Simulated assay, not measured.
Amino acid sequence: MKGPLFYSKILLFGEYGIIKDSKGLSIPYNFYNGALKKDENPSESAIKSNQSLKRFVDYLENIDEKLVTFDFDILKEDVNKGMYFDSSIPQGYGVGSSGALVAAIYDKYAQDKITVLENLTREKLLKLKAIFSEMESFFHGKSSGLDPLNSYLSIPILINSKDNIEATGIPAQQNGKGAVFLLDSGIIGETAPMVSIFMENMKKEGFRKMLKTQFIKHTDACVEDFLTGNIKSLFKNTKQLSKVVLNHFKPMIPQQFHELWKKGIDTNEYYLKLCGSGGGGYILGFTEDIEKAKQSLADYKLEVVYNF
């Protein structure tokens, strides 16, 4: 048995901001994927995944039935037969490993599920997001539900605000020098501690003001620029966003990347930003000249995800 593939995602813009109603833009990233699977001779990682699935099933049984119901008889039978999530998506890297798993379980076992082939009205998207938020909270303590939504639908999603999301198209990739890339920090990040630092900071008035007047302002501008293909303005706003993150989100940036982050802003060779909640995993980079950025970041593993 091997189920359909569910892909990783990249939240290009909106990390932390979407908690406070900034815009956001999330795109599928087909380089990594995962599927539900059963094997005759499971590996050690398959056994570990299966044990985690058992705990997840216990958690799902307590979700409000008005929100979503599952075929627990078949789900439990499959899990007891050793089903696991076979995934190439790195965990703790901010590219949606738990989101893909949530999408796979919903797709196979949810009753009265909203399918990808339906006319996806805003109501349906919000309902899916609410279901996925509840399901994914098992992994992170608090989830927006966006990662599984992206993985489930496999299309770019534009977040206008908490209650206003839509499927969107993004400009076709060009063969230019500009690029969005992933930089491997080599460290596994954990979402829950990062989110709690953020929530703690939100108690301070100065931080809340900065979030509204700087962080959200530049995030919203970046989303607009990206969708309209206004590249010049996009890099200007990404630079500002990179500065704000370096000044106000330092705990989310691994210590050894503080200098590298600043170097990008000072030289304009690249601009770094958080990919997901930070603390490790991938760091997202934007550059107007990918060859220059590669030279400048020669000591690091770089993956291009989009070309301008």
Score class of each variant (00 low, 15 high):
residue 132 F to D: 01
residue 132 F to P: 01
residue 132 F to T: 01
residue 132 F to C: 00
residue 132 F to G: 00
residue 132 F to E: 00
residue 133 S to H: 03
residue 133 S to E: 00
residue 133 S to Y: 03
residue 133 S to R: 02
residue 133 S to M: 02
residue 134 E to Y: 00
residue 134 E to G: 05
residue 134 E to Q: 14
residue 134 E to D: 10
residue 134 E to N: 13
residue 134 E to C: 11
residue 134 E to F: 00
residue 134 E to T: 15
residue 135 M to D: 15
residue 135 M to N: 10
residue 135 M to W: 06
residue 135 M to R: 11
residue 135 M to H: 09
residue 135 M to T: 15
residue 135 M to S: 12
residue 136 E to L: 09
residue 136 E to T: 07
residue 136 E to P: 14
residue 137 S to D: 14
residue 137 S to F: 10
residue 137 S to V: 09
residue 137 S to P: 09
residue 138 F to P: 00
residue 138 F to G: 00
residue 138 F to E: 01
residue 138 F to N: 00
residue 138 F to W: 04
residue 139 F to P: 01
residue 139 F to Q: 01
residue 139 F to S: 02
residue 139 F to T: 02
residue 139 F to A: 02
residue 140 H to G: 03
residue 140 H to P: 03
residue 140 H to T: 04
residue 140 H to Q: 11
residue 141 G to R: 04
residue 141 G to W: 04
residue 141 G to N: 06
residue 141 G to C: 11
residue 142 K to A: 14
residue 142 K to Q: 12
residue 142 K to Y: 13
residue 142 K to I: 11
residue 143 S to C: 11
residue 143 S to E: 12
residue 143 S to L: 13
residue 144 S to P: 07
residue 145 G to T: 06
residue 145 G to F: 05
residue 145 G to H: 05
residue 145 G to P: 05
residue 146 L to A: 06
residue 146 L to T: 09
residue 146 L to Y: 14
residue 146 L to N: 09
residue 147 D to M: 02
residue 147 D to N: 06
residue 147 D to K: 07
residue 147 D to L: 03
residue 147 D to W: 01
residue 148 P to G: 12
residue 148 P to S: 10
residue 148 P to W: 07
residue 148 P to R: 06
residue 148 P to H: 08
residue 148 P to N: 10
residue 148 P to Q: 10
residue 148 P to L: 10
residue 148 P to K: 07
residue 148 P to M: 08
residue 149 L to C: 11
residue 150 N to G: 15
residue 150 N to S: 15
residue 151 S to I: 02
residue 151 S to P: 04
residue 152 Y to P: 03
residue 152 Y to H: 09
residue 152 Y to G: 04
residue 153 L to D: 09
residue 153 L to P: 01
residue 153 L to R: 13
residue 154 S to R: 14
residue 154 S to V: 00
residue 154 S to Q: 14
residue 154 S to P: 00
residue 154 S to A: 14
residue 154 S to F: 06
residue 155 I to F: 13
residue 155 I to P: 01
residue 155 I to S: 14
residue 155 I to L: 14
residue 155 I to H: 15
residue 156 P to E: 07
residue 156 P to C: 05
residue 156 P to N: 07
residue 156 P to Y: 09
residue 156 P to K: 11
residue 156 P to R: 11
residue 156 P to F: 08
residue 157 I to K: 15
residue 157 I to W: 14
residue 157 I to L: 10
residue 157 I to Y: 13
residue 157 I to N: 12
residue 157 I to S: 10
residue 158 L to V: 06
residue 158 L to M: 12
residue 159 I to Q: 03
residue 159 I to V: 15
residue 159 I to D: 01
residue 159 I to H: 03
residue 160 N to A: 03
residue 160 N to F: 02
residue 160 N to G: 05
residue 161 S to A: 01
residue 161 S to W: 01
residue 161 S to L: 02
residue 161 S to Q: 01
residue 161 S to C: 02
residue 161 S to E: 00
